[in-house]
């Protein structure tokens, strides 16, 4: 599958925070059968939605010059299942940042229900051009953030 776990950027406060949206669909390939009632999204993929929102925040802040690569996570709590059809609201907040590093925290919700909380997610800020063609990355960002004022 495409490893693009952000569908829309719905809010952005430069240098401070981002709110992204990840839709889930039964048509996606990652669902895992659970022992109780039906498929669930593997919890580490819910963490990835937060990491990718943080990466877009770094790209918005740096005009696509830099993006985030995961270095460490101090604490993550998975507090409930994500089911097919759920819409994830992903809030990432910058706790501190430098030229080389950023530390973020975040919450992922389905409606009012918190499904993940993470603190002290540390990322290295790497050159976007090392990972992908910056023109492609810029087009992706424009598509995701078209609704922003």
């Amino acid at each position: 599958m495409l490893f693009q776990l952000t569908d829309r950027i719905v809010d952005y406060q430069p240098g401070r925070s981002i709110r992204a949206r990840k839709l889930t669909s039964r048509a996606e390939p990652y669902w895992r059968e659970s022992a109780d009632d039906g498929p669930v999204m593997p919890p580490p993929l819910v963490l990835e939605t937060l990491c990718q929102a943080g990466a877009w925040l770094v790209m918005l802040d740096t005009d696509v010059a830099r993006r985030a690569a995961l270095l460490s996570v101090s604490d993550t709590r998975f507090s409930g299942p994500v089911r097919p059809g759920d819409v994830l609201t992903v809030d990432a907040t910058v706790e501190s940042s430098s030229a080389e590093r950023a530390v973020m925290s975040g919450v992922v919700r389905v409606d009012e229900r918190t499904v993940l909380e993470a603190s002290d997610v540390m990322c290295a800020l790497v050159d976007t051009a090392d990972l992908d063609d910056p023109a492609v990355t810029r087009r992706q960002l424009e598509a995701l953030s078209g609704d922003l004022p």
Partner: peptide, 12 residues
């Protein structure tokens, strides 16, 4: 399938 992660900490 009965067992799922509740928390993960100190990941490097």
């Amino acid at each position: 399938e009965r067992w799922v992660p509740a928390a993960v900490a100190r990941v490097r």
